[in-house]
Write a protein that binds this DNA or RNA. Structure first.
Lengths: 238, 238
DNA sequence: ATCGTGGGATTGTTGAACAATACTTCAATC
DNA sequence: GATTGAAGTATTGTTCAACAATCCCACGAT
């Protein structure tokens, strides 16, 4: 054991990006994920293996690996011998998503006493992001900010697995807005609510924040499900 | 609209198994998942593409699709140009897993007022399963029963997404036992605790059940992390 | 209008090939 | 003696082409 060894041992941990020079399949998956979440690919669209592999210059096999990844995230659905389609959530999915969000967000907020300063700050940053977007009447940006807000809430739990699951749930939630070709102004009324929740958190009054959030989720789910079932009825009848 | 149409409309919903005549990749993934969870493949083991594809008579491409699926479940880890390995959780992972479990299980139990009879019965069944296993000194079965118990608790939330996430978390938890070549008797002392929790649930005293569960999780995490860090120290020193 | 029956298109899976990268071995150097 | 450097080897990453299995659609028969 020399002095150099000692120094090397004290070096900071490797940034986790080191582990993964991303593979082609992952890069393709990342690209498609953005397309789906941003609505460039409408729910229900079929993704042709041949056309996509040609368009993006990757082999069918690589593309299929990407499809598998996104299917597991529920952004695509895979039907045997028929292909993969962009998920088209139903109102039952909306309810399920909100159940999941209650499980993830409420406990995280309630336990915010033990959350790091940075985690609380992230919540505040998301609120500010939303307000900036509202200024500019950037409704899509407002929706994104709202997603960031709720992801930050779940982040209070301080668990990497929760964070990842929450990200998935929010990505799916975003699909819901697309499927009812969503006015993103939908989010606008909730911005003040977000601000209030963050205020409670900043005061470290976790319980009050949780109560607000619970009401928020109830209201949001209610509104969403109502709009959604109406849309489903119209589409079903047509 | 004829009378037959009417009857057809009233038919039960299709069992969701209908959607998926499973592909080969999924079947391979299912098989490997069992191997990993049951410990036939020890944590850290590298899975050679060539050898496995030959052994199980599938092409490398198909096998790789299976690898992707399991990587996303965190049962395998994929390292670029090095291959896939059975995950080797660290003590930090143990903490993270318990954070996740608190988020999933506690809210589900607290909200058990609204849970279905069937969901509560599933909890009871898991307890019985555990007691039967203890009778036969079947420690592995006892561990399985314990997993079922906690999955049933999360199931009280009544969300398919939560159920799936919980299953993943529990599968990973099982890996933890393997990595410290786990005496499954580990679970035995907790069986009575499970019984108590179920009793509270059956009485519909959700809050009392949640309190018990919270203590359970604290104790279990504490014990696990202690044993785990001791093992890490030994392994690191050796 | 309903029910079979093709034909065409797409996916499912395989096998082989080659490029890119990591690991191993061994010799050269300080 | 330990470390560095430079082959060679093994394994993964990715592509391509082929064929089987399956689904979809249109056509015609009843």
């Amino acid at each position: 054991m020399t002095a150099t060894d000692d120094l090397i041992d004290r070096l900071p941990e490797p940034p986790e990006a080191l582990a993964r020079a991303t593979s082609q399949a992952e890069r393709v998956a990342d690209m498609l994920r953005v397309f789906v979440i941003d609505g460039a690919l409408a729910p229900g669209t079929r993704l042709s293996e041949e056309r996509l592999s040609r368009k993006y210059g990757v082999s069918r096999n690589t593309l299929r690996e990407a499809f598998r990844l996104l299917s597991r995230e529920r952004l695509l659905v895979h039907q045997m011998h028929r292909g993969v389609f962009v998920s088209r959530p139903t109102s039952a999915d909306v309810r399920d998503l909100f159940s999941a969000r209650r499980c993830l967000e409420l406990p995280a907020v309630r336990g915010a006493r033990h959350a790091s300063e940075a985690a609380v700050a992230a919540v505040g940053a998301a609120v500010a992001e939303g307000e900036a977007a509202r200024e500019k009447a950037d409704w899509w940006g407002l929706g994104t900010a709202n997603m960031h807000f709720h992801r930050a809430l779940a982040g209070l739990a301080g668990s990497a697995r929760i964070d990842e699951f929450m990200s998935q749930v929010l990505a799916e939630t975003r699909l819901v807005f697309h499927v009812m070709n969503a006015p993103e102004q939908f989010h606008a009324p909730y911005l003040d609510w977000n601000r209030r929740i963050h205020l409670r958190l900043a005061e470290r009054d976790a319980d009050a924040a949780a109560v607000e959030l619970s009401r928020y989720l109830d209201a949001s789910e209610e509104q969403l499900v109502t709009a959604f079932t109406a849309m489903e009825r119209d589409a079903g009848g047509a």
